[in-house]
């Protein structure tokens, strides 16, 4: 028992490394507040692109979405970071992470939002268009609010997924939470920092989960 505490819940170790972990938290937060919104916006563009029902645009979007959903994000990130110098582009780790995450995340969000948009009946479009509201305004004011409500659970789980995936950024040496935890582990020869990392993720995600599911429920109640 003492051994267990020594190895996994060592307070001394924690006191020693917590500044490092805080730095990691900060980087992870920075990643999240950039990656999630741009991925979501990219997904919105993809989904709106689908709604034009243009044959060529659709074909293009299907290729994009299928490809980047199937492509392992870790490999994608390595490609972007280690591959771009070969084509004469040296991108900083943070930017490489943004690019890789944008490609991956926007295709997931795009697919979810497309399904949401398609779940809304033609009647809603027709009602709005018949009053003279334009196509894009109909999309934003009439279709999307309902579509997002219909796929809210998927949007939520994808968002949580993306946040957890930011840990992948450690492979390109971006000092986010997981990477800092592992460095701390290396310095102290003790796995306590990793336990701390897990608990920090939990502490960040759990309130978010609660908040999002409250939001979902509130939206449902309001409608009916």
């Amino acid at each position: 028992m003492e051994q267990l505490v020594q190895n996994f819940f060592n307070i001394e170790v924690l006191i020693k490394v917590y500044p490092m972990l805080l730095k990691g938290v900060w980087m992870t937060l920075q990643l999240c507040v950039v990656v999630v919104p741009i991925g979501f916006l990219g997904g919105l563009l993809v989904a709106i692109g689908y709604s034009f029902h243009n044959r060529w645009l659709n074909a293009l979007l299907i290729v994009y979405v299928d490809f980047f959903r199937a492509f392992p994000p870790l490999v994608l990130l390595i490609f972007v970071f280690y591959g771009t110098p070969y084509v004469g582009l040296e991108v900083p780790a943070f930017v490489a992470v943004l690019i890789a995450f944008f490609l991956n995340t926007s295709s997931y969000y795009g697919e979810i939002l497309r399904a949401g948009i398609e779940s809304i009946g033609r009647g809603q479009w027709e009602a709005a268009r018949s009053t003279g509201i334009g196509r894009l305004q109909t999309m934003f004011y009439v279709i999307l609010p309902q579509a997002m409500r219909n796929v809210a659970p998927d949007l939520t789980s994808n968002t949580l997924e993306v946040i957890k995936f930011t840990a992948l950024a450690s492979v390109v040496a971006l000092p986010e939470l997981l990477r800092m935890g592992r460095i701390a582990q290396g310095i102290t020869y003790n796995p306590t920092p990793l336990i701390a990392v897990a608990l920090i993720y939990l502490a960040m995600l759990w309130p978010l989960v609660r908040f999002l599911s409250r939001l979902e429920r509130r939206m449902l109640v309001k409608q009916r």
Partner: peptide
């Protein structure tokens, strides 16, 4: 103006 059989009000 157009009025539809299924009303098509915006539910939200």
């Amino acid at each position: 103006g157009m009025v539809f059989q299924s009303f098509n009000l915006y539910p939200h």
